[in-house]
Computed example of a mutant assay.
Amino acid sequence: MPHHTHQTNQFAPLGLFQLSPAAADLVLLGDLTGRYAAGSYTRLASDGRTVSLRADRQGAADHGHRITAAIACHVARAGGTADQLTQLLLHPEHEGGRHARSIALRSGEARALNYIHRVWNSAAAVVSSTRVPGSRHEAYEVLAALRDRIETTPWRGERGRTALRVLRAHLNFAETAGGPLHHASERQTAEEAGISRTTLRAVYELVLKPRGWLRRLRVGHGREGSTWYLNQGIASGHGAPASPSRFRTTQYPPQPGT
């Protein structure tokens, strides 16, 4: 019996829908490759330049939340429910639910259920208003085109160079998420870009959002990162976003004037 077929069948006793192989692996085995760990275990030091290690508990909580959010998105895309997500995460043999179960052990089941429903509401809201690229290959094509556009755009002055670092950080998060739609907190992004949060906010408001590179679809709370959409930016020398056909299949069609 093929490996993934065996895994998917393990959901049958719980009455759950069939998940993709990648989603099943994440639920059953956790983040074996470290794909969701980027930036979780480091922080920007007080000098604003160097990166230092974060306390294990903080890093593990951040990493665990990113895994939980990813599973919630998989469940939402597959047409699941909050109850089915809860069953997946609280099942004692599912490594992907370790973070939710640790909250239950540490703070009680009610706190864990509240957390799961908060993550579910965020995932469901995003998934309901987005379109996923037709294939993984298509998503990678979109991100490759975005990287090419980012790297070939002139970034003048110190502010421009800082904006480029921030965009590269978001691109890394988008590649981890598998498409332009991704989650990232201010702290994660500032650390990934090697800048302070104050500088990050200035770059968001003065450069990246006005010029169409980034849209914040949902503001995060606490350790839960904001939901972002990485776009192709405004064409140099023109007043409107460029719109090559390859971008029409991205996860979230940008709306005019936002």
Rank of each mutant, 00 (worst) to 15 (best):
residue 1 M to H: 10
residue 8 T to L: 12
residue 8 T to M: 10
residue 9 N to A: 14
residue 11 F to V: 11
residue 11 F to E: 13
residue 17 F to N: 12
residue 18 Q to T: 15
residue 19 L to K: 05
residue 22 A to V: 15
residue 25 D to R: 13
residue 25 D to G: 11
residue 28 L to W: 10
residue 28 L to N: 13
residue 29 L to A: 15
residue 30 G to D: 01
residue 30 G to K: 06
residue 31 D to R: 10
residue 32 L to C: 11
residue 35 R to N: 10
residue 45 A to Y: 09
residue 46 S to R: 08
residue 47 D to E: 02
residue 48 G to Q: 01
residue 49 R to H: 08
residue 49 R to W: 08
residue 57 R to F: 12
residue 59 G to T: 09
residue 62 D to R: 08
residue 65 H to M: 02
residue 67 I to R: 05
residue 70 A to R: 10
residue 80 G to L: 06
residue 81 T to Q: 14
residue 83 D to M: 12
residue 83 D to Y: 14
residue 83 D to Q: 15
residue 89 L to W: 13
residue 91 H to T: 03
residue 92 P to R: 03
residue 93 E to W: 05
residue 93 E to R: 07
residue 96 G to V: 12
residue 97 G to F: 14
residue 100 A to Y: 06
residue 101 R to G: 04
residue 104 A to C: 11
residue 104 A to Y: 12
residue 105 L to G: 14
residue 105 L to T: 11
residue 106 R to A: 14
residue 107 S to G: 09
residue 108 G to D: 12
residue 109 E to H: 11
residue 110 A to N: 13
residue 111 R to F: 12
residue 114 N to D: 13
residue 116 I to K: 02
residue 116 I to H: 07
residue 120 W to L: 04
residue 123 A to W: 05
residue 123 A to K: 08
residue 124 A to N: 01
residue 125 A to V: 00
residue 126 V to P: 06
residue 126 V to E: 13
residue 127 V to W: 01
residue 137 H to L: 15
residue 143 L to C: 11
residue 144 A to V: 10
residue 145 A to G: 04
residue 148 D to G: 03
residue 150 I to S: 08
residue 153 T to I: 04
residue 168 R to E: 00
residue 169 A to Q: 04
residue 174 A to R: 00
residue 174 A to T: 06
residue 174 A to W: 02
residue 177 A to V: 00
residue 183 H to P: 03
residue 183 H to F: 09
residue 184 A to Y: 05
residue 184 A to L: 10
residue 184 A to S: 14
residue 185 S to P: 03
residue 187 R to A: 09
residue 190 A to H: 01
residue 191 E to A: 08
residue 192 E to Q: 01
residue 192 E to V: 06
residue 194 G to N: 05
residue 196 S to M: 00
residue 196 S to V: 07
residue 196 S to E: 00
residue 199 T to V: 11
residue 199 T to C: 09
residue 200 L to Y: 07
residue 203 V to Q: 07
residue 203 V to C: 06
residue 204 Y to E: 11
residue 205 E to T: 11
residue 205 E to I: 02
residue 208 L to Y: 02
residue 209 K to P: 00
residue 210 P to H: 08
residue 214 L to T: 03
residue 218 R to P: 14
residue 219 V to S: 15
residue 220 G to K: 08
residue 220 G to H: 04
residue 221 H to G: 12
residue 223 R to D: 15
residue 225 G to S: 04
residue 226 S to P: 05
residue 227 T to E: 09
residue 229 Y to K: 06
residue 235 A to V: 13
residue 247 F to Q: 01
residue 247 F to C: 01
residue 248 R to S: 04
residue 249 T to I: 03
residue 250 T to G: 00
residue 252 Y to G: 10
residue 252 Y to D: 13
residue 253 P to E: 05
residue 256 P to N: 06
